[in-house]
Design a protein around this nucleic acid. Structure first.
Length: 675
DNA sequence: GTTAGGG
DNA sequence: CCCTAAC
């Protein structure tokens, strides 16, 4: 008897293998080169200024001083500028001298206000540098708002794009992370008046939760600080079920660990800033996390809001930026932000919250299961013509189907679910769009075409998560999971130490096979060296018990969504079935049935010997027979996997020979009859 | 829906 | 196991 239970899962904060980043997005320069260069130049100048500042103060360094420092020397360098330096923080940003920073912290642990504002030419840089690093950020609340043009195609507007992100934003984050910095919030606002042609009007804000609205920094009190808490001192345990977020007015909810590293972060130097701005997309007013895009043609205006930080999944964090990129791409080559709002941080009520965003630890944040199943709701509309505004509360996620014996323990159930969810998450997720209950398959349709318009009831629109491409295999196919063997556990743990919420339970699930379940079994079989599962199968347990394997049952319809192109469809949408090696007893049953029915009546074989084995189709049986025949015909040492008793193989050969010999006769007979 | 066979 | 041509 099998207990069937389906459940849904949400974003999860489980450990996900770190996927090597692809090359940084290619930035095309093209006709904007000049503008861009000048921008870069501006930042270089700025950096130079900062460097000079630091140099000047180096003698008196290691302590915070310099409020309203005189910048005459910088003026002397011929750079037009106005600077207001309220602290030295910014200096560290440019020189990246940890020692200095640390010394600062050693002596400045009490709440301290620091503020840096500098402007070079038309470029304004506001930076706050020495802020406590948030080494462990485990949860984040994500709010996502979209404003999309109806006229844009579904593909363009598809939330799938959320998966990506504008290179600028993504790059910013990556760069920050790469530098080991943990800036809690970075707002980049680039506003170009289309008519002003002033490429230099930029505004870079680097903020932090501890930064007040006046851009000052407030450090947390001592007790909140845990020096070098680079490894999670505590984690969030994976829990079944979902947590309803009472604040869940919009978006994902994530929390942040209270543990914070003491190490101050270094600030973004000019180099990084330059990189950021060298991205063509930066011109389109990217703001990190809390951002709003506006582009000249007034077409696309997505608004992303991400409050409180990290502990959002890779998926989420990576997705947001990508989306922006795509949108930027479409939008606005020429003019940016017709409104010309240089303060475009967003007019949403949550504006004040921008400082709350926290970028999590290095290897991308994780999301916790936030809500198990929710359909996205669109809350607000855009009054402006042709603009549709979305507010995605959450995604409806694919169904997860799990078969597990009644006598399995709750613990094993948890582990099974855990693995299933993890496996799916590892494969990445895609976003599907559902309109009026129908999944929108054609990415090229416009929102209007699929029934999404600004004056339409948005209640009929929903988003859902779908397993992504890489989704290698369901949980127990460890073969395809990076973590396979118990002895690898530590290795992985240490390697992923930077991931604050790496959940031990996940690992335990993988490595703590429990006798009551077939986990152990699977672990064995997946070693591909260890024989057998037939103990289980032959000791009275029905073969079906092996169905404990949690199979993420991706619904066909879900998979059918977003059929981009032929090429990607299969790999991205179709989930390969769980590999379930035939047990000896199954082989035996198969052989027996084939002996009876022959090799051309798989349906009969299935019905007679595997009627109750739902996971064995007649195609499977046929395939297995095929491999059996092959196995039987090769030398024993060449065989792999489950060891099939020689006598069974002999029977296979025998039956195969018999039926293959019979076949011609029958065929001949048939032909004779025809003639 | 089944079979058979290549991938 | 997947995919598909060919029943």
């Amino acid at each position: 008897m099998v207990l069937k239970k389906t459940l849904e899962y949400g974003f999860s904060g489980y450990w996900v293998p770190i996927i090597p980043r692809g090359p940084r997005s290619v930035r095309k320069r093209g006709h904007k080169k000049t503008i861009e260069d000048s921008r870069i130049c501006a930042f270089e100048l700025l950096a130079a200024v900062a460097g000079k500042l630091l140099q000047e103060s180096e003698s008196s360094a290691s302590s915070i001083v310099a409020e309203g420092q005189d910048l005459s020397s910088i003026h002397n360098s011929g750079i037009k500028q106005e600077q207001l330096v309220k602290s030295e923080a910014f200096k560290s940003e440019c020189l990246d001298q940890r020692r200095w920073i640390e010394s600062v912290f050693a002596s400045e642990l009490a709440p301290e206000k620091r503020n840096v504002k500098s402007s070079v030419g038309d470029t304004v840089l506001e930076g706050t540098s020495v802020i406590p690093r948030s080494e462990i950020s485990t949860k984040v609340r994500h709010n996502l708002k979209l404003e999309i043009l109806e006229s844009k195609t579904a593909a363009e507007n598809s939330p799938r794009k959320v998966e990506g992100g504008s290179p600028n934003c993504g790059d910013i984050e990556r760069q920050i992370k790469a530098e080991g910095n943990h800036i809690h919030n970075v707002d980049l606002t680039v506003a170009n008046n289309s008519n002003s042609n002033d490429p230099m009007e930029k505004r870079v804000k680097i903020t932090d939760p501890f930064i007040n609205s006046d851009n000052s920094v407030q450090l947390p009190s001592y007790r909140d600080l845990v020096p070098n808490a680079s490894f999670p001192g505590h984690r969030n345990n994976v829990k079944l079920g979902s947590r309803v977020d009472d604040e869940n007015s919009i978006g994902w909810n994530v929390y942040r660990s209270k543990i914070r590293g003491l190490r101050p972060q270094t600030c973004i130097g000019h180099r990084r800033i330059r990189k950021l701005l060298s991205s063509k997309y930066c011109k389109v007013a990217p703001t990190f996390k809390d951002c709003e895009f506006s582009n000249g043609d007034g077409c696309v205006k997505p608004v992303y809001r991400c409050r409180k930080a990290p502990y959002t999944s890779d998926v989420i964090q990576c997705q947001v930026p990508l989306k922006k990129r795509k949108i930027c791409n479409h939008g606005s080559t020429l003019s940016c932000d017709r409104a010309g709002s240089s303060e475009s941080i967003s007019n949403s009520p949550e504006k004040g919250m921008k400082g709350e965003k926290t970028i999590s630890a290095k290897h991308l944040p994780r999301a916790k299961v936030v809500s198990s199943s929710v359909v996205g709701h669109q809350t607000s509309f855009k009054s402006r013509d042709s603009l549709v505004k979305f507010s995605i509360k959450s995604f409806k996620v694919p169904e997860l189907s799990i078969d597990i014996p009644e006598n399995a323990t709750v613990g094993s159930l948890k582990r099974t679910v855990m693995e299933a969810v993890t496996a799916i998450l590892q494969g990445g997720l895609h976003v599907g769009v559902v309109v009026h209950g129908n999944k929108v398959k054609d990415d090229n349709k416009t929102l209007l075409q699929v029934g999404i318009s600004h004056n339409e009831d948005q209640g009929n629109l929903g988003f859902m998560l779908e397993p992504g491409s890489a989704i290698a295999s369901p949980p127990l196919s460890r073969k395809e999971l990076p973590i396979l063997l118990p002895h690898e556990t530590h290795h992985h743990l240490s390697r992923s130490a930077a991931s604050p919420i790496l959940d031990l339970e996940v690992l335990n699930a993988s490595f703590a096979p429990s006798p009551e379940t077939n986990l152990d079994n699977n672990v064995e079989t997946n070693h591909e060296l260890v024989p057998s599962t037939h103990e289980v199968l032959t000791n009275g347990t029905a073969p079906d018990s092996r169905a404990l394997v949690a199979v993420p049952a991706v619904s066909v319809q879900a998979l059918a969504v977003v059929p981009r192109n032929q090429k990607t469809r299969r790999s991205e949408l179709v989930q390969r079935r769980t590999r379930r090696p035939f047990s000896v007893s199954e082989v035996e049953a198969l052989v027996e049935a084939v002996e009876k029915f022959g090799t051309g009546r798989w349906r009969d074989v299935k019905l007679s010997a595997f009627e109750n084995a739902d996971h064995r189709t007649y195609v499977d049986l046929k395939d297995k027979w095929k491999t059996l025949v092959h196995t039987a015909s090769i030398s024993p040492h060449q065989r792999r996997g489950e060891t099939v008793p020689q006598d069974l193989l002999d029977r296979v050969l025998s039956a195969h020979g018999y039926w293959s010999h019979c076949q011609p006769k029958l065929q001949t007979k048939h032909l004779m009859n025809l003639l």
